[in-house]
Amino acid sequence: MKVLVPVKRVVDANVKVRVNADNTNVDTANLKMAINPFCEIAVEEAVRLKEAGIATEIVVASIGPKASQEQLRTAMALGADRGIHVETEEELAPLSIAKILNAIQANEQAQLIMLGKQSIDGDNNQTGQMLAALAGLPQATFASEVKVEGEQLVVTREIDGGLQTLKMPLPAIVTTDLRLNEPRYAKLPNIMKAKRKPLDTVTVDSLGVTLKQHQKVLKVTPPAERQAGIMVASVEELVEKLKNEAKVI
């Protein structure tokens, strides 16, 4: 079975971003970039399915500037077989991304499409669900366990009160949650080998997708600053402050 894994290039999770001076966006120049952590979990799960003899080919795809190829190479070093890079300088909304991925899926006909549940930059948590709607496929979001049983997929999902298990026919869409697995590190020989794996570059136009603008970002501002707090010297002082100053207990 073929598995398609879309991955996104984002600012590294440990970097604190700042809003730029003219309040139009966050300043990402010269920041360390990486594969979105949830996408990494999706790649790992696909690789494990391959190691278990279930997946036969793993295709990774990324939409973004030329530099996104670094993340595709990383995914290939982790075990993906080939990459598709949709080159665009535009920052696209999740719906547009989903439309592009739907066009890729129309060509690839993957049995399983595995995405991260959200990207840590836009925090949208939309693309997988939107792709499922456009492709007319069932979806299992926020997966913490994925099992392929013949033509069926059994997925345990993290929901607000606990866990839920769903069963659905393949092809299907899965979005990964943190608890699905612990991604491996790329080994040096695999990083070298990944450089020789096939990577196709295509454009949005060549995929036959027409996009429209759905929203405009009017401004990006820093969040409200919290007033500086105080350090208390003892538990007694803390309780006194909470009772008499903050009046919360």
């Binding site: 971003v17 966050v26 405009k216 820093p222």
Partner: peptide
């Protein structure tokens, strides 16, 4: 499109939402 995790309504078509783990607030129309 969808606007996720709206925290403030500016007008009937404009909303504020956090991005980058709340490190910035985007006003989106």
């Amino acid at each position: 499109a969808q606007i996720s995790e709206v925290v403030e309504v500016v007008s009937e078509d404009t909303f504020v939402r956090p991005i980058y783990a709340g490190s910035a607030m985007a006003t989106v129309q």
